[in-house]
Design a binder for these strands. Structure first.
Lengths: 187, 187
DNA sequence: CTTTAAAAACCGACCAGTTGGTTTGTAACT
DNA sequence: AGTTACAAACCAACTGGTCGGTTTTTAAAG
């Protein structure tokens, strides 16, 4: 039996994520990853032909996790404005995988900006969705940019707010989104 | 006088900025800087005892430039809300030195997060200033986070908006800030 | 105005460590 | 026998940083 291809690959990815989160972007090296998951570099290279391939896998992993949370939010909160859905998703991501998870974005930005294309496309799709509702477009964009600003500040480690304050801000943004109404216009 | 101490140091800094902007953070190496400004590495090391010292100088340069724009805005628009002032400053920075200038932040974040402390302190001061006016605190924070989100998206190269759209957004944010009133409450 | 000597600016070779990546080997499974 | 899944040794390029030496500037003395 191939010793355990799937779980080995996954173990490498998790090791890489672990490094990206708990150490800086600069320490995400192939040697480090190999050591962190108790493998030789040759082993790692067997699963990912080069570093870029590994980073791609990281990005995919990140996007898929996010999409998973988005889906769960969609199920619980139906017929809700896109911006509302987005804010709730962010909240959930924040609770569960911690924003540190997004540090992978920083690694990607540093290593190979092309990797961010996947992420950018995700944002573009969301803009298109917001444009479907021209009347609430701008208000939604502002709320969206605000939550992004808050996240980015935290991501770079320059947020002047405490976690408590950030929580308050997120809640207020959410309530602002809710006061924009629901999809059908009632409320 | 030594050959030209001031301008040599400045030339190194400008070379480093040039690299930080036009190439990725990873290419900001001492060798690269030296080559870019037509000097030997030894020469560079003479002006900056190590890479960190150079990066510090970059951050200082960035902060001082920003402060310069803020002052010019202060002169032209007196008695205006802090958030209003901040948005106008951002606009001016954007026009003149381009947001690419802020790419230095990314380099710093990647290389030595401690360097961001200066930047973080600047943000903290602004929060304190906003808190002086509790009635408009939250609205100001939202506008601020929004412009930050817009900038950060652009910084990472993931902005789903065109430059035209971003301009529209910035203008709208500014007009929202203006509708918050001026410092004295009239208007 | 010279001479002189210290100080500052700068060069270029070098170093140890790290990087992404390759090659070769080998044990296990099919 | 052949493929899969690794391990181990290895490599060239690059990293930040050091160091001995050379040139240029400055300032003081004659």
């Amino acid at each position: 039996m191939p010793r355990d291809k799937v779980s080995s690959r996954q173990k490498i990815i998790e090791s890489a994520i672990d490094i990206a989160i708990n150490q800086g972007p600069r320490t995400l090296t192939l040697d480090n990853v190999a050591e962190n998951c108790g493998m030789s570099k040759g082993g790692v290279m067997h699963h990912f032909k080069n570093k870029e391939a590994l980073l791609e896998a990281l990005m995919d992993n990140l996007m898929e996790t996010a999409k998973g949370y988005e889906n769960s939010v969609c199920e619980e909160h139906q017929n809700v404005l896109p911006i509302n859905r987005m804010l709730r998703t962010r909240e959930r991501v924040h609770e569960q995988v911690d924003l540190d998870y997004a540090r992978i974005l920083l690694v990607a930005a540093n290593e190979n900006p092309a990797l961010l294309t996947i992420f950018k496309n995700h944002l573009s799709e969301f803009v298109e969705e917001l444009k479907q509702d021209p009347g609430r477009y701008f208000d939604s964009v502002v709320l969206w940019l605000a939550i992004d600003g808050l996240s980015f500040q935290e991501l770079l480690g320059v947020s002047p707010f405490s976690e408590n304050e950030r929580q308050t801000i997120r809640n207020k943004l959410l309530s602002m989104a809710e006061s924009l109404g629901d999809k059908t216009g009632e409320n």
